[in-house]
C-alpha cells in the first residue's frame, strides 16, 4: 500500500517537473505585469503585440512555407526512394539505408555546419546566397529519411503478388504502381508527411546555420530574442507554438496507432 502511494507520488512529482515550466510559461503569457514575479491581471496584449509585429509575421510565413514545401517535396522524393529501396538487393539496400540513417544519427550541429559549408562553397557557381532557399533545401534533406522510414514498413506489409497480378492483367508498371501500390501505402506516406512537417516547424539548429541575414523562422526569432533575456511576447509566441505542436502530435499519434492496429488485424 505504501509502495503504491510512493509510486504514485513519484510519478506526480516527475510530471510536475516536466509540465510546470510549460504551464507557467503559458500562464504568464496572459500576465499584464512585465515582471514575472507578480501577477498583474489577465491580458491579451502580448498576443496583440505579437500579431502587430511584422518581423514575427514574416518569420511565421517563412516557417510555414518551408514546412509545407519541404514536407511535400520530401514526401515525394522519400516515397519514390522507399519504393526503390524496397526492391534493392541486400548489399545495395544496406549501404543506402546506412547512408539514410546518417543524417538521423549525426548531431544536428554537424549536419547544419556541413550544409552551410556546401551552400557557401557553391555560391560561386549557383549564385544562391544563404537565405530562404538554402534553408528549404536543408529542411528537405533532413526530412527525407523520416519519410523513407515511415513508408518502408508499409511496403514490407504489402502483398507483392497484387502488384504482379495487376501487371499480368495488362496494367503498365506506372498504372499498377498508382492504382495498387500507392493506395496501400498511403497511410505511411501521410504519416511521413506529417512527421516531416512537424520536424520542419520544430527545427532550430539546422535552420540557424543554413539561413542568411534577414531571413529567420520562428525558432531563430525566439532564440535571438531569448538571448537578450525574458520577454512576455516570446511567452505568447511559445504558447501558440506549443499548442500547434500538441495538436499535430495528437493527430500523428492517433494515425500511427490506427495504422498499427490495422496492420495487426491484417496479420490475423
Amino acid at each position: 500500500m505504501v509502495a503504491r502511494l510512493a509510486k504514485r507520488i513519484y510519478l506526480y512529482v516527475i510530471f510536475v517537473f516536466l509540465y510546470a515550466p510549460i504551464v507557467v510559461l503559458v500562464v504568464y503569457s496572459f500576465n499584464e505585469s512585465k515582471s514575472r514575479g507578480h501577477w498583474g491581471g489577465f491580458t491579451l496584449k502580448w498576443y496583440l503585440e505579437l500579431f502587430k509585429d511584422t518581423e514575427i509575421s514574416r518569420a511565421l510565413y517563412n516557417t510555414l512555407m518551408i514546412a509545407i514545401l519541404s514536407a511535400i517535396i520530401a514526401t515525394i522524393i522519400g516515397t519514390a526512394a522507399a519504393i526503390g529501396i524496397h526492391d534493392m538487393k541486400r548489399v545495395k539496400k544496406a549501404i543506402v539505408m546506412n547512408l539514410t540513417y546518417l543524417p538521423v544519427l549525426n548531431p544536428d550541429i554537424v549536419t547544419g555546419v556541413s550544409l552551410m559549408l556546401l551552400f557557401v562553397f557553391s555560391k560561386a557557381v549557383t549564385q544562391i546566397g544563404l537565405g530562404f532557399f538554402t534553408m528549404l533545401l536543408a529542411h528537405i534533406t533532413f526530412n527525407i529519411p523520416y519519410v523513407i522510414l515511415s513508408v518502408l514498413p508499409k511496403l514490407k506489409q504489402l502483398n507483392k503478388y497484387v502488384y504482379e497480378a495487376a501487371l499480368d492483367l495488362g496494367a503498365t508498371p506506372l498504372y499498377a504502381l498508382w492504382k495498387v501500390v500507392i493506395p496501400e501505402i498511403l497511410p505511411g506516406i501521410f504519416t511521413g508527411f506529417l512527421l516531416a512537417f512537424t520536424l520542419s516547424i520544430d527545427d532550430f539548429v539546422i535552420s540557424f546555420f543554413t539561413t542568411g541575414s534577414g531571413v529567420s523562422n520562428l525558432s531563430i526569432y525566439v532564440y535571438s530574442m531569448a538571448r537578450r533575456g525574458v520577454n512576455p511576447k516570446i511567452n505568447a509566441l511559445s504558447t501558440i507554438m506549443f499548442l500547434t505542436v500538441l495538436i499535430l502530435l495528437l493527430i500523428v499519434n492517433k494515425r500511427m496507432s490506427k495504422d498499427n492496429s490495422n496492420a495487426k488485424e491484417g496479420l490475423k
Binding site: Y19, P21, I22, V24, G37, A226, S238, F242, V245
Partner: peptide, 29 residues
C-alpha cells in the same frame, strides 16, 4: 501516461529551455 511522457519530447527545444529562463531569472517564480 506514456503519451504524457512523449509530449514534452516534441515541444520545441528552445521553448523548453526558454521556459526555465522565465522560471529561474531574477524576479522569476
Amino acid at each position: 501516461l506514456a503519451l504524457l511522457f512523449v509530449i514534452p519530447m516534441w515541444i520545441n527545444f528552445l521553448l523548453r529551455t526558454y521556459a526555465w529562463m522565465t522560471l529561474l531569472e531574477k524576479d522569476g517564480l
